[in-house]
Each structure stands twice: as structure tokens, then as C-alpha cells.
């Protein structure tokens, strides 16, 4: 069924502007392979773009790992964004629409959360941030 499609986990370092573009392309490829609907692909890639940019700007760079997950009934794409930056001091505030410290629209974290099915943020001051998002096929 999935012959010819490589579904092994893939990693992409995020150290520059161009890397954010590469993360988008990588996520798109995997989302297509898992047969997410067009709208779901678009939502996931958009969320990945926001989170990769956060990793670059606020986390001082890091990496993204894309894996295919399977819960027995359906498949999905999971992306983990990890950095070893300063962490998020007030997570609730950071998840509020319109809140920003970086001069953006403040929709990165809160917007990305609305675009995926599962959204987990682990952060510790001075130790970095790890955001895990999952989108399931319908």
C-alpha cells in the first residue's frame, strides 16, 4: 500500500530562514505520503511554518523531527520542534491570541494550536522549548 514511499522519521535543522522553507517542504512531503486531505495538509504545513519560525527567532535555532504515527485506526504526522533557547516564561500568555514579544502578529503559537489535532508544549526557563504537534488523517 505504501510501497515506494519512505515513511521513516526525518529531521531538519532550523538555523536559518531557508531552513524554515525546508521544514515546510519536508512536512508537505510527509503529509502527502500519509494522504492527509488537502485542507489538512495546508493546515499542518502552515502550523509547521509558524512553529519553525518560533524555533528560529525565539529559540535561537534548533531542529524539527517529522514522524509518521499510527494509532491502529488511522495514520497521522507528528512534528517535534526542539530548541535549547531561553524557554517560554509565561506559557498561558504566549498562547494568547495577539500576544507577541517578537514583533509578529502574535498568532504563531496560538494559531498553530488551532490548526492541529494535538498540541503539547514543554518548556523550562533557560533550558529550551519543545513543541509537539500531531495531525491525524480523517
Amino acid at each position: 500500500m505504501t510501497a515506494g514511499v519512505d515513511l521513516s522519521p526525518k529531521a531538519q535543522a532550523i538555523g536559518s530562514d531557508e531552513d524554515v522553507v525546508r521544514v515546510r517542504q519536508l512536512v508537505r512531503t510527509v503529509a502527502v505520503a500519509v494522504k492527509l486531505s488537502l485542507v489538512d495538509q495546508t493546515k499542518l504545513v502552515t502550523a509547521a511554518s509558524e512553529l519553525a519560525r518560533n524555533t528560529l527567532i525565539y529559540g535561537g535555532g534548533g531542529n524539527a523531527e517529522v514522524t509518521v504515527v499510527d494509532d491502529g485506526r488511522r495514520r497521522g504526522v507528528r512534528i517535534v520542534f526542539a530548541d535549547s533557547g531561553p524557554g517560554i516564561p509565561d506559557l498561558d500568555l504566549a498562547l494568547t491570541d495577539g500576544y507577541t514579544t517578537g514583533g509578529g502578529l502574535g498568532l504563531g503559537l496560538s494559531g498553530a494550536r488551532r490548526l492541529v489535532d494535538e498540541f503539547i508544549v514543554e518548556t523550562a526557563a533557560g533550558k529550551g522549548t519543545r513543541v509537539t504537534v500531531t495531525k491525524w488523517s480523517r
Binding site: L38, V39, Q41, T42, K43, T46, E50, D97, L105, L107, S110, G111, A112, R114, L115
Partner: peptide
């Protein structure tokens, strides 16, 4: 603008 992009933007809150 593509439909999927428009739907995503609405969800994103933009």
C-alpha cells in the same frame, strides 16, 4: 487565494 489556504487563514485567526 486557494480555498485550502483561505480555510487555514480563517482557522489561524488571520
Amino acid at each position: 487565494m486557494r480555498p485550502a489556504v483561505a480555510i487555514t487563514l480563517v482557522e489561524l485567526g488571520l
